[in-house]
Design a protein around this nucleic acid. Sequence first.
RNA 1: GUGCUUGUAGCUCAGUUGGAUAGAGCAACGGCCUUCUAAGCCGUGGGUCGGGCGUUCGAAUCGCUCCAGGCACACCA
Length: 566
Amino acid sequence: MEELKNNIIEEIASVACIDASEVVLEMPKDTANGDFAFPCFRLSKTMRKAPVQIAEELKEKLIKIEGIEKIDSVNGYLNFFAKKEGMVKSVLLDVIQNKENYGKTNVGKGENVVVDYSSPNIAKPFHIGHLRSTVIGKALYNIYNHLGYNSVGVNHLGDWGTQFGKLIEGYKRWGTEYNIEENPIDELTKIYIRINAVCKEDETALDACRENFKKLEENDPYCVELWEKFRSLSLKEFDRIYKILGCTFDSLNGEAFYSDKMDEVTKLLEDSGKLVESKGARIIDLEAKKMPPCIVGKTNGSTTYATRDLAAIIYRARTYNFAKAVYLTSYEQILHFKQVFEVAKLLKLDPKYTDNLVHVPFGMVHLKTGKMSTREGNIVKLEDLINEAVAKVEAVIEAKNPDLEDKKETARKIGVGAIIFNDLKNARIKDEIFDLDEMLKFEGETGPYVQYTYVRTQSIIEKAGYVPNIEEIDFSKLEDKDSIEVIKNLAAFKDAVASAAKGNEPSVVARYVVTLAQSYSAFYNNNKIMNAEKTVKDARLVLTIAVGIVIKLALSILGIECPEKM
RNA sequence: GUGCUUGUAGCUCAGUUGGAUAGAGCAACGGCCUUCUAAGCCGUGGGUCGGGCGUUCGAAUCGCUCCAGGCACACCA
């Protein structure tokens, strides 16, 4: 398909005497306008002719292009009609021969991309707000891998900061009232909410919390012991959730990991001569960049989130020699990362690192009642959501396919898939209003719909009971409109992945796989496979196999599993 | 107040580097299961692309401006 496109581009370039980079081809929405189109309008200025005339002249000169059977000139457009059989053959061979490696490239040249994602706060519930960072990050991780990068997934745990001073203070005051061994996160959350309420009323309590954190930074044994306890109990719970989501990390180095790496940051910033004192705090002034100052040292001497992020940049540059480092957080932190990335330029790192720090912000999940806040206690825990989704899927299975084997496992894959897909299908910057009913719809542009389409392909392959020899397929049997639509969508996979990486936007792949599934469903409804004449049946089977491969591949890139039956 | 961001069908959203008649899903209505899984398919209705001005052969897309929502803006992360 790319080859065909390149042929056309080269021919146009040579005939029109322009550079190939100036030839931009489109894929017309309406198939009546061909498979590729070249708008001649932009040439009209330099060539001093009407677009229609240019198109006509180019058409006359373009005598023969490999793989093209017809060229039309319509209203200033040059429309190219591909030889269907060749196009069908090249696409299907590509998919069938490469299987799950279809569309893999080596543009990443094995270089490391650090993906900083998920990053929940220790001792707080893993709620539906954390889901976005986790699923978008995981998808980007897979997307970069597919493009030949080596992704490094870092869960930058929120395991440091004043919040631990608060928890320690709360535990000191009322620790015996709560059973944190039994139900760590829920109980710690109660303590957290309670101490926050106290701090709101009582400034001295807040000071005590800050003092606790300072002690923690200074390795006070009591504080460290409590911190370790909170951390390990929380991680145990997170592990359970990551397992359900099929999520793994290459590093769990959170903020605490950098607590002993701050001095170097401070030293480097001092050396830069840009570190100044202001109102008792140590800051980098960013007025020249039209930003508020970046605070790297608090009045009481302890560090900030920014300092730890700077230490992390140094550490990751040295450890991973990254080609790119992407950070997944909600858009609340846009300014923070702008500041940190600016200050990072003062750390004397090779610019190849500091020029490739990318914050990837995403929209927030709101409840109908407003913003979620652990402090206020109005959150939806992810695990509760997953349980509801799986329960609903189980009910659907019971109604539609009660004889299904492995109902529980299938329900898990579908329920979790529905939740993940729902979070990935829209542009990441969009806010989301949490609506359980909306989330648990399994019809239309949803995860279960795509999975269902995959299951249909597998069902047909199973029923056929054989795999046709690709060498013997008569690809001319797939020249009907439905088949061609599927073929074009199969070919579009590579662009979808590339464009998702370019914009750090997994929704492109999610949209893509829906489109592929839709085109196959239409094909499936309009064309009988099993009882077609043998050569037709074989050709359609190969198409079906290819669709199965690409749907499964695309979903796996999105971090979604496919049941074989449902 | 400053900066960023969002605004497209009743609802949720797509819309390639500006291109041909602005597309899906949901909801509504009407069809399609004695034949490969109806979690499906086909059809109908539904649009001042927030408003205005501008650039251009051509604007949902680019620029300016206004309106509306959201977020951030010194010791939370």
